[in-house]
Simulated scan of single mutants.
Amino acid sequence: MRKPLAIALVASAGVVSLLTVSTTSASADPATVPVGDRPTAVDVAADGKAYVVNTAAGSVSVIKGTSVTATVPVGKGPSDVVVNDTTNRVYVTNADDGTVSVIDGASDTVKTTITVGPRPAAVDADEKTNLVYVGSAQDGSVSVVDGNTDALRVTVPGSGQGVAGAAVNSDTLRVYFSNIYADRLEVFDGKAFVGTTVAGKAPAGIAVHRATNSVWVANSAIHHMTILDGATGQEKGRVLLRSAGSSVVVHEESNTIYTNGGPNGVVEIDGASGKIVNEFPLGINPGEVAVDSGKTTVYATDPLHDRVYLIPRP
């Protein structure tokens, strides 16, 4: 029997110690790729293609190598993107028209458009169950999309407060949504909300390391990341950053974490020790970050200059 999540989840037991942070700067020579107007979100497919949401342009730029190979028109005000490598489909939330665009990863064209809850802003996919979870920036509701049929199954009412980020742990069947207004995560079990967890000030980006059942939270109004124990929902550590981060991604195989919480770039963290091991100065405050499955390239969007940085990893 699967152990249920403990939902006492109001405060961590005892005092949470800050993890020791050791910083070493890394010299990187990133490439830059021009994309559409105001690139924000990004995700990378298993075949190495990166999908970049251009919020102001209402499009998605597809990057292969260091070139844009396609520009895909989507809905109004696209805000987030996730790749489902099981089906080779890409899901893009369109906040301004209440829809999700489904892109066929083989042809890089829109396959269908799904009407979901109001102002969809955050999305993640469970590649084991082939379900896609969409969180609302208006009322925190969650729309569940069947990835086999690309049809809406249900929209579950939320807390009434909008969410900013989403992350699935397919091993525990838990989905986490960041409530940026209440400084907490809303915990969803695929059918209903089952509790909340504490987080830092204005949590935004979320990522899960499945092997350790750790939830990493980028707190956009404070200079630390929160690390939660997915089994108990309690805080088990923090990583001090030089700048507040709003995006975080986990490389599952190596337990490496990347965030935009550097002063002018991207930070790399060893997930096992909680130590910062690299900083990649870009001279800008990046938008979202992503990493490919081989951990050869980290992607960082630059919304002010309409480009994406490609940071090489050894």
Rank of each mutant, 00 (worst) to 15 (best):
G233L: 11
I206F: 06
T256A: 11
G48F: 05
N148F: 12
L5W: 14
A164R: 12
A202R: 15
T24S: 14
A106I: 01
A218H: 02
N84P: 01
P157C: 06
L310R: 10
N219S: 12
V21G: 04
A106W: 06
N84K: 01
A199K: 02
N84E: 02
V123S: 07
T112Y: 03
A106Q: 13
S159N: 14
G233Y: 05
V110T: 12
V163Y: 01
D96H: 07
V100K: 04
T259M: 05
T129W: 00
S293E: 12
V68E: 06
G65E: 09
T297P: 02
K3H: 13
H223F: 09
Y299R: 10
A121M: 11
N169V: 00
T301E: 07
H224S: 12
N255R: 07
Y133L: 10
P120N: 05
D150L: 08
T155N: 04
V194R: 05
N88F: 01
T66A: 14
R89K: 15
G135F: 06
D189T: 02
D96P: 00
T32N: 11
K64V: 01
D229F: 06
G36Q: 08
T40E: 14
A218E: 03
R153S: 12
V92F: 03
S17I: 11
K49G: 00
I180E: 11
R89D: 07
A166I: 04
T40A: 12
G162M: 05
F177N: 02
Y299T: 07
G233D: 08
T20V: 13
A121R: 12
S246L: 03
T20R: 15
S293V: 14
A231D: 13
N179E: 08
S178R: 03
G162T: 01
Y181P: 00
M1N: 08
P203G: 10
G75Y: 03
N260F: 01
I206A: 07
A211R: 12
N179W: 01
N54M: 10
S143A: 14
P34I: 11
G245S: 15
I227M: 14
S101Q: 05
G200P: 06
L228E: 06
I114M: 10
G265K: 09
N255A: 09
V187R: 04
G287I: 03
G58Q: 10
L152A: 05
V277Q: 04
V21F: 06
D80Y: 08
V72W: 03
L310M: 14
A46D: 13
N260H: 02
G36T: 08
S12W: 02
P314N: 12
G265F: 09
V145N: 02
A41H: 09
G271D: 04
V72G: 03
S25K: 13
T301F: 05
S247Y: 04
T296V: 04
V208R: 08
A95W: 00
V90S: 01
S101V: 10
V249I: 14
S22K: 15
K76R: 14
G65A: 10
G262L: 10
L228R: 04
N278M: 03
S67I: 06
V187N: 03
P263L: 15
A231Q: 13
G158I: 03
S67K: 15
T232M: 09
S247W: 02
T259S: 14
H223K: 15
